[in-house]
Write a protein that binds this DNA or RNA. Structure first.
Lengths: 334, 334
DNA sequence: ATGAAAGCGCTAACAG
DNA sequence: CTGTTAGCGCTTTCAT
């Protein structure tokens, strides 16, 4: 292992000068700098991150804590965040909790957080109460629906607004029986409930009542769930002329079901999804979907975190930001 | 910040005893241990990972270097590996290279590798030559088609065998014009070429010639590519009665295209994919697919790495392991 | 512009 | 079973 002193000896300077050169600090003679760099190169010196971190208290890494990596939504998010963090000269390390309460607690324990200069966390099991118990100094920005204490920065997509927009579009294009696939009748802070709220608001805006039979709850959010839900709705004899699916995955299954039922999209039934995933534009017919602004969310999260990391002493209160959603119209709507 | 000495003072012992307790080392009196743990608890002490790492040269973390996180394949892999690593008491940190040569080089630089006790890497731009130049001590296991110097452990799926099995099944069920979607006519070590090799072997096994017009190269591996490829093949008037698609994504697009062409699956055309992703069982018709044994791969990779991590001095040569693939039959084949 | 000294928090090795 | 000593490799501070 090559240490800084080895480089220093080789270049005939002190370790301090090597340190200054390696870290690009000013106040080193041009000629000295060249000599040091040559020695670094020749010996293949690499700074020891642990030693630097012990001394400075910084690690140069940003942590991302996620429930899982293999859903398209989180995978894409991780990908965007990794790019955004990279463009700011840090690098992102992703940790998976599996959506397990105990693992989430572990991930936000002071000891683990200290491995990072800052952390971005999406927690699904931990609530405000759990988080307010924790005492840690690492800046953390929370991402997602789950509520967090007000002292933290928190970024959420506009679930309510996006759903409202989507539903309004369906209602304003001559659909009168709009079902929500993956809705939630009772509930408050989870994704399904928020998207259902937007659906209700759009109906209220249009002076229409919601037919509770058309609020279709599903177990999960896979293709299969969408397929089953729509098939069941049809088999139950419920009339519908539009579907607002709370995720693209559900919409994909729904489209397949409608095709099997010989219902034409969008003539007989309009369909809108939510997520605007890559697939949306490749489905047959191409799926209209709510774009939640993931790229903007990623940028915003990283900006907020960067501020906290730059100025860790700053005790300003947390900011909750909602990123605007936008409806992208394709072939599945009129 | 609470240090070990603070705990030691509070418990009236030396730091060494605290260290022994915290690390679960034997040889501490029961009564002393209780006192120490009480102090740890009361002060909320957490070990400083940087200091420990500086001292021991270990970090407790395993790194996973991947081109991207938002393809279903890598996302699932990361998910499985994370679980496998977690079950061995370490935790996995995932880094994304974006498939960019320079970022891959950075990721396997000695400085970055030293942040981990061991690293699992899937490189797509770096070849044997690049890797043999690098001098690092961290145990690394490579994953994927890209060739690596023989001193490293290397795990690959059985691309050739899986394709051969799939194609053989198609040929043995009365298909005589089997197209390979996403094949590669010339090439050696990449995924497409290997899977094409298996396709050729199956034909040779059956004493049949490959119709080169049925080796369909595609730009990428998205749904849309599969759709376009099959549509184009049909429009060009090529007769085919089976499709071996080198990925499930291509197969998904292919199924959609066949439906639009009013070709019945599997009566008119049989279809097999490769990856056996979650979707496969939810498509209409359910897709037969080659299961590459991802879970077994994840376990094997982690086992190999664990051995190297346990015994870093061991200079035994690298092992290249190929994990057996298995054809899973569903509705898209006869 | 460069260097010497001190110490970040922890644990290996040895002493008692 | 418990404590003492020394030092991992780096950077902060202060001196030259």
């Amino acid at each position: 292992m090559v240490r800084m002193v080895d480089v220093a000896r080789a270049a005939g300077v002190s370790t301090m000068t090597v340190s200054n050169v390696v870290n690009g600090r000013p106040g080193v003679g041009t000629e000295t700098r060249t000599r040091v760099l040559a020695a670094v190169d020749e010996l293949g010196y690499q700074v020891n991150a642990a030693a630097r971190s012990l001394r400075t208290g910084r690690t140069g890494a940003i942590g991302l804590v996620l429930p899982e990596l293999d859903s398209p939504y989180y995978a894409h998010l991780a990908d965007r965040l990794s790019a955004a963090v990279g463009s700011r000269g840090r690098h992102l390390l992703v940790e998976r909790t599996g959506g397990v309460r105990e693992r989430e607690l572990e991930a936000v324990s002071p000891g683990r957080l200290r491995r990072y200069d800052g952390v971005i966390a999406t927690l699904v099991q931990l609530g405000s109460r759990d988080l307010s118990r924790l005492r840690f100094e690492t800046p953390v920005v929370f991402l997602g629906e789950s509520p967090v204490p007000s002292r933290f920065d928190h970024v959420v997509m506009d679930n309510v607004g996006g759903s409202r927009q989507a539903t309004s579009h369906l209602l304003s294009t001559r659909s009168r029986h709009v079902a929500i696939v993956g809705g939630r009748r009772a509930g408050t802070d989870d994704m399904a409930s928020l998207r259902t709220l937007g659906y209700r608001q759009a109906h209220a805006d249009a002076g229409l009542d919601v037919d509770e039979d058309l609020v279709v709850e599903v177990g999960c959010c896979s293709w299969a769930d969408g397929y089953r839900a729509v098939t069941a709705l049809h088999d139950a004899g419920r009339a519908f002329d539009a579907l607002f699916c709370v995720t693209d995955a559900l919409a994909t299954g729904a489209l397949r079901a409608l095709a099997d039922l010989d219902l034409h999209v969008p003539r007989d039934v309009q369909v809108v999804g939510f997520d605007n995933g890559e697939q949306a534009a490749f489905l047959v017919p191409r799926l209209s979907s709510v774009e939640p602004g993931n790229d903007a969310i990623a940028e915003l999260v990283v900006d907020l975190l960067e501020q906290r990391v730059q100025d860790p002493g700053d005790a300003r209160p947390g900011v909750t930001s909602t990123v605007t959603s936008r409806l992208v119209l394709r072939e599945s709507t009129r």
